Amino acid sequence: MDPPELFQQDLRRTVVLGACLRHWGMPRDRQRFSRQTDVVEVYFFPASAESPVARFATVRGRGHG
Rank of each mutant, 00 (worst) to 15 (best):
M1I: 11
M1K: 07
M1S: 11
D2T: 08
P3E: 09
P4F: 10
P4W: 04
P4E: 10
P4M: 06
E5V: 13
E5I: 13
F7L: 12
F7D: 09
F7E: 14
Q8E: 11
Q8R: 14
D10Y: 11
D10F: 12
D10G: 15
D10T: 11
L11C: 10
L11Y: 13
L11M: 12
R12P: 01
R12V: 12
R12T: 11
R13V: 01
T14K: 14
V15L: 09
L17S: 08
G18R: 00
A19F: 11
A19Q: 13
A19D: 14
A19P: 00
C20T: 00
L21V: 09
L21E: 13
H23R: 07
W24L: 07
G25H: 08
G25A: 00
M26E: 09
M26I: 00
M26T: 04
M26K: 10
M26L: 08
M26D: 06
P27H: 07
P27F: 03
R28F: 09
R28A: 15
R28P: 05
R28N: 05
D29V: 09
D29H: 15
D29C: 11
R30E: 03
R30Q: 12
R32K: 12
R32P: 02
R32V: 15
R32G: 09
F33R: 11
F33Q: 08
F33G: 07
S34V: 07
S34K: 07
S34G: 12
S34Y: 10
R35N: 14
R35F: 15
Q36L: 10
T37L: 02
T37D: 13
T37Q: 12
D38M: 11
V39S: 03
V39F: 01
V40W: 00
V42A: 04
V42F: 00
Y43W: 08
Y43Q: 00
Y43M: 00
F44R: 13
F44H: 14
F44C: 04
P46D: 05
A47V: 08
A47R: 15
S48L: 04
S48A: 05
S48I: 05
E50Y: 08
E50W: 08
S51K: 12
S51L: 14
S51F: 05
S51D: 15
P52D: 05
P52A: 12
P52R: 07
P52L: 03
V53S: 06
V53H: 13
A54M: 05
A54K: 04
F56W: 13
F56M: 13
A57R: 07
A57C: 15
A57Q: 14
A57Y: 06
T58G: 05
V59K: 04
R60L: 02
R60T: 10
R60V: 07
G61C: 05
R62E: 00
G63D: 01
G65P: 03
G65K: 05
